[in-house]
C-alpha cells in the first residue's frame, strides 16, 4: 500500500518536476555555456575560450561588482539596525496594531519599484518637493542629495525594508519572554540581554532577513540608475548593458556567472548556519 502510494506520488510529481527543471535549470545552463564562448557570438556552436572572464578584470567590471556588494552590505547593515526596534515592537509590543503595520508595509509593494524611486527623485531633486518648497518659503535652497552613493544606499534600504522587517519580527518572536526576564533577573543590563540573549536567539531571523536583502540589493540596478544617476555602475547594470547595447552575450553571461557564484555561495553558507525549520514554525 505504502509502496504504491510512493510510486503514485512520484509519478504525479513528475510533470511539475520536469517543468521546474526546464524552466529553472535550462536558462542557467545556457548562461553558463555562453559565458565560456568567444566574444560577441550568438551561438553555442563555437570553441570555448573563456575570454569573457578575462574582461572582468581587464575592463574594470570588478569595480562594479565591488560597488554592488559594498552598497548591498551597507544597506543590509543599516536595515538590521533600523528594523530591529520596529520588528521588536511588531513581535512584542504592538499586538493587533502589528497587522495594520504589516498591511501598510506590504501595500507599498503593490506599487512598482521604479515608480516609487521616481517619486523619491521628484521629492529630493533640486526644485523638487522639499528643496523647492524650502526655497519658495525661505529663499534658501540646498544641493540635491541625488546622484551620489549614499542616496543609492538609501534607495536600497527603502526598497528592501520589508524583506528585512518580516523575517526579523519572526526571529524576535522566537525569543521566549521568560529567557529575557530570567537574564534580567540574573543581573544582566538591557544591553547584555540584547547581545547575549535576544540576538543569538533571534539569529535565524537575522540571517534570513540579511540574506534576502543582501542578495536582492546586490543584484539591484534601478536604485543606482534612477537615484544614483549612474554615479556608480551596479554589476546588474553592466550585465544588462552587455546583453543589450553591448550585444556581447558571452560577457553578460560571464558577469552573471560571477555574481551567481558569489551570491549563491554566500546564501548556501548562511542557510547552512541557521535552523530554517525553527523559523518556519516547526518544532526542532
Amino acid at each position: 500500500m505504502n509502496r504504491l502510494d510512493g510510486k503514485l506520488g512520484l509519478l504525479s510529481a513528475l510533470p511539475l518536476a520536469l517543468v521546474l527543471l526546464l524552466s529553472f535549470l535550462a536558462p542557467l545552463v545556457v548562461v553558463a555555456l555562453f559565458s565560456i564562448m568567444p566574444p560577441k557570438v550568438f551561438s553555442l556552436a563555437n570553441m570555448p575560450d573563456f575570454s569573457a572572464y578575462s574582461l572582468f578584470f581587464s575592463q574594470g567590471y570588478y569595480k562594479s561588482l565591488l560597488w554592488s556588494l559594498g552598497m548591498a552590505l551597507s544597506a543590509t547593515a543599516i536595515l538590521v539596525v533600523i528594523c530591529w526596534p520596529l520588528a521588536y515592537a511588531m513581535a512584542k509590543v504592538f499586538g493587533r496594531f502589528s497587522l495594520i503595520l504589516t498591511v501598510a508595509v506590504v501595500m507599498s509593494l503593490f506599487v512598482s519599484e521604479n515608480i516609487r524611486l521616481f517619486g523619491w527623485v521628484l521629492t529630493l531633486m533640486k526644485g523638487g518637493l522639499i528643496e523647492g518648497h524650502l526655497r519658495a518659503w525661505t529663499g534658501m535652497g540646498f544641493e540635491s542629495p541625488l546622484y551620489s552613493v549614499p542616496i543609492i544606499v538609501f534607495g536600497l534600504v527603502y526598497v528592501y525594508l520589508p524583506f528585512m522587517l518580516f523575517p526579523l519580527a519572526q526571529g524576535i518572536s522566537m525569543v521566549p519572554d521568560d529567557t529575557r526576564q530570567a537574564a534580567y533577573d540574573l543581573g544582566a543590563s538591557r544591553w547584555q540581554v540584547l547581545w547575549q540573549i535576544e540576538v543569538p536567539l533571534a539569529a535565524p531571523g537575522i540571517v534570513v532577513g540579511s540574506l534576502l536583502t543582501f542578495v536582492l540589493a546586490a543584484g539591484a540596478l534601478a536604485e543606482s540608475k534612477i537615484l544614483g544617476g549612474q554615479a556608480v555602475i551596479a554589476i546588474a547594470d553592466d550585465v544588462e548593458t552587455a546583453f543589450t547595447f553591448g550585444q556581447n552575450w558571452p560577457l553578460g553571461s560571464a558577469l552573471s556567472m560571477i555574481l551567481i557564484v558569489i551570491i549563491g555561495g554566500l546564501a548556501l553558507f548562511g542557510v547552512s548556519k541557521v535552523d530554517l525549520d525553527a523559523i518556519m514554525g516547526r518544532k526542532r
Binding site: 521566549p176 521568560d178 529567557t179 526576564q181 530570567a182 537574564a183 534580567y184 533577573d185 540574573l186 543581573g187 544582566a188 543590563s189 540573549i197 543569538p200 536567539l201 539569529a203
Partner: peptide
C-alpha cells in the same frame, strides 16, 4: 530586577537554549 540581590526559578525554568 537586575539590581536586586534576589533571583527566581521560573515555572518554565527559562534556561537559555543557545
Amino acid at each position: 530586577a537586575n539590581l536586586r540581590p534576589t533571583c527566581m526559578v521560573f515555572q518554565s525554568l527559562a534556561l537559555f537554549p543557545h
